[in-house]
């Protein structure tokens, strides 16, 4: 309301702001629009001269044919198995740790938190040779289990930081009241504290799921069977071929990214806090 009463220069500034912001927004989304348009082209339109931005013939059936022309279904299945299992593992491991760290002081607490923070900083890429040799040693090459464990391990830190922040913000008095009323500690935790920390848990779940979904280097290195490859590794396998079926490559990509983009947008508010480990106020 106050904006309406401001003078003309202010509106001009505002219009400039809007124009700049919209153009930048379009700039960042444009490659994916290009991806979408390419996914709808018939194969012989890919190398059309002169080039066209939009498909001449909108071939929506690419989205049906891609399921037959590439093992998309098995890539998706692998990605789902790995991402869901890794997420559940993170949740099972991070929740008690985060809760205990938020509520208790104990010897080695600082060291534990330091270790967690360091985990977040070390990416699998830097350690990939060590990871490969460890997985090989345990006979875990080409297995879902290895990918699940490593995806969970490298995403654990985010969840511990985020959840311990949420637990710390829940007043202890609420739990104490439940204890006085005769609840066991576990019951107080599951009936009172966990529901209150739900937004944090949802964020941790989505973040872990999306990171595992997008993980590339470990999967590239340890998975060799076609039917066990998760989607990023499966899709990039297309580009080694002589006549790359970009239209199918991109329809598969669109199928893979739309759900995770929506999930990520839904946790926008908490993303930064978790990633920078509470160091940015």
């Amino acid at each position: 309301m106050t904006q309406k009463t401001k003078n003309a220069t202010f509106s001009l500034k505002k219009i400039a702001t809007m124009l700049a912001a919209y153009s930048i927004g379009i700039f960042f989304v444009y490659p994916y629009i290009n991806m979408f348009l390419t996914s709808l082209k018939p194969h012989d339109e890919l190398n059309l001269t002169p080039m066209h931005r939009t498909p001449v013939q909108w071939q929506w059936r690419n989205y049906i044919e891609v399921w037959h022309s590439a093992p998309i279904a098995s890539y998706l299945k692998s990605s789902l198995i790995i991402s869901i299992s890794a997420t559940l593992l993170v949740l099972a491991v991070a929740t008690p740790a985060a809760y205990y760290v938020a509520r208790n002081r104990f010897r080695g607490r600082g060291l534990f938190l330091l270790l967690v923070l360091a985990t977040q900083m070390f990416s699998p890429t830097a350690l990939i040779i060590g990871i490969f040799r460890e997985v090989d040693l345990f006979g875990g090459l080409d297995s879902y289990l290895a990918l699940i464990v490593f995806n969970a391990g490298f995403n654990l830190a985010f969840s511990i930081w985020l959840l311990s922040g949420f637990f710390a913000s829940i007043p202890v008095e609420i739990e104490e009241a439940a204890l006085i009323d005769g609840c066991s500690r576990i019951k107080a935790l599951s009936r009172i504290t966990l529901p209150l920390a739900l937004p944090g848990i949802v964020t941790a779940v989505i973040f872990t799921f999306v990171s595992a979904w997008n993980e590339f280097v470990i999967a590239l290195t340890i998975m060799s069977s076609v039917d066990k490859k998760p989607i990023p590794v499966g899709i990039t396998g297309f580009i080694g071929q002589y006549d790359v079926a970009w239209e199918f490559l991109f329809s598969a990509t669109i199928i893979a990214i739309i759900p995770v983009v929506i999930l990520f947008i839904s946790i926008e508010k908490y993303l930064v806090g978790g990633l920078t480990s509470g160091s940015v106020k």
């Binding site: 505002k14 702001t17 809007m18 912001a21 919209y22 930048i24 927004g25 379009i26 960042f28 989304v29 490659p31 994916y32 290009n34 991806m35 999306v210 979904w213 997008n214 590339f216 990023p232 899709i235 990039t236 580009i239 490559l249 991109f250 990509t253 893979a256 990214i257 995770v260 983009v261 999930l263 990520f264 947008i265 926008e268």
Partner: peptide
């Protein structure tokens, strides 16, 4: 400004879509 939410969402897209997919496009 009006539509700020959408501009922020647009910025999240490359982040969520992953580096692999973005490199492909």
């Amino acid at each position: 400004f009006p539509g700020r939410k959408f501009v922020r969402w647009a910025l999240i897209v490359p982040w969520a879509a992953s580096v692999v997919m973005t490199s492909l496009i």
